[in-house]
Simulated assay, not measured.
Amino acid sequence: MSRIVTVGAAQLGPIQRAHSRTDVVRRLIDLMRRARAMGCDLVAFPELGLTTFFPRWWMEDQAEVDAFFEREMPGPETRPLFEEAARLGIGFTIGYAELTVEDGRTRHFNTSILVDKAGRIVGKYRKIHLPGHAGHEPWRAFQHLEKRYFEVGNLGWPVSRAFGGIMGLCICNDRRWPETYRVMGMQGVEMVLLGYNTPEHHPPAPEQDHLAEFHNHLSMQAGAYQNSTWVVGVAKAGVEEGCMLIGGTAIIAPSGEIVAKALGRDDELIVAACDLDHAVSYKTTIFNFAAHRRPEAYGLITERAGVVPPPGDE
């Protein structure tokens, strides 16, 4: 028996600062319609899929920063996306900057949501592994101020039972950390949907630049294989406000194999029919956690070694 979820990974080309939410939503709807025409049950959009990647700028006016955030989802400018999804009968996932009030204070998160075929939000995740820096570093060609503009996500890595399977969400830098996949893997995740905005140039370590796309795929393929799950990684790509973002949008099987990959760095849709049952062979043999995983030994190792600081941080 097979459980097929046909997924469209909708890579976006650059979103410039001058582009309005309305402009971007039109692009998203066009990709969504193309995905539905190709038989997709679900279409995945990137991290911060409604605006340019604003953490590249140092801003001191909080109102200027907050203009990039969504106060409700859906809101007036994003509601057409939800309505079109419900009309077409297709689900989607998208990342955005979330402004919310919790515990009597205003909070800012880098967030992703999962929406079902009726246009209802059925899953939500807030980014945990925030990269970059919080202080002003004007020596950089562009800054990466996620630690300044966002709080660390406070929802953990929940999974959702939707589209006939167990679905999980993560965002960009999360993909580099094994804990991301493992926490969802321990909950039986069968498909991880993640969006990213990743610069080709890494100012603190430019010697790594030529490996940006390799490391992108390496981390997602390892996460897929080691946790017996499909991974759908979706980029915002191309030259955005003078910053080159990598592409490499890919749909990856539980075997770790890439089954579909974007060719360019513009708006592009790739599609794959993903059999969720393809994970069963791995979940019941090599990566049968109950049979082979040994968490009781991990504590002993970390107790003896502790956390080793990087050079110069002792």
Rank of each mutant, 00 (worst) to 15 (best):
T249N: 03
G165R: 13
M1F: 13
G164A: 13
A35K: 00
I128T: 05
I246F: 01
F150H: 05
R105G: 04
P138E: 04
S255E: 06
T78F: 03
R21T: 12
P204Q: 11
I94H: 00
L99Y: 07
R105S: 14
F287L: 10
L269P: 01
P76Y: 11
A67C: 07
P178M: 11
V152I: 14
R27Q: 11
S219N: 07
S228K: 14
I121H: 03
Y225M: 07
E77S: 07
G306H: 11
G168C: 05
E314S: 03
A279H: 01
P309S: 02
P206N: 04
A97G: 02
E296Q: 14
I94V: 12
G185T: 04
V232M: 08
L218M: 05
A97Y: 05
P55M: 05
K236Y: 11
R175L: 14
G223Q: 00
F289Q: 12
I246Q: 09
L48N: 10
L193R: 01
E268N: 04
F92L: 14
E70W: 13
G164L: 14
P203C: 06
H129C: 12
V183G: 01
I251W: 02
A67V: 07
L42Q: 11
V152H: 07
T180Y: 01
W157R: 13
V307A: 14
E83L: 04
G153H: 03
E98C: 12
P55N: 01
I301Y: 08
V101A: 04
K261F: 09
F68S: 02
L211A: 06
A235Q: 09
E98Y: 12
R148C: 09
T249L: 06
M244G: 00
F214M: 15
G185C: 01
W230D: 01
K236L: 15
L99E: 04
T78K: 11
P199R: 12
R126L: 08
A85Y: 03
A205G: 09
V152K: 08
G256V: 07
M186V: 11
A262Q: 11
E151V: 04
G195I: 06
G168Y: 02
A85E: 05
I171A: 04
E47M: 10
G119P: 00
G89V: 02
S2N: 11
G168Q: 06
S281G: 13
R175Y: 10
R175I: 12
E257Q: 15
R126H: 06
E70S: 15
V231H: 03
P74A: 15
R176P: 02
R56P: 00
V192L: 15
I15T: 01
T6K: 15
M167C: 14
A290T: 11
T180A: 10
F54V: 02
P254C: 09
V24K: 06
P138R: 02
L12Q: 12
I252G: 00
Q11C: 08
G312C: 06
V5I: 12
L300K: 14
W157T: 06
L50P: 02
L42R: 03
T249S: 12
A262G: 15
G8R: 03
A97L: 01
M32R: 01
A250M: 15
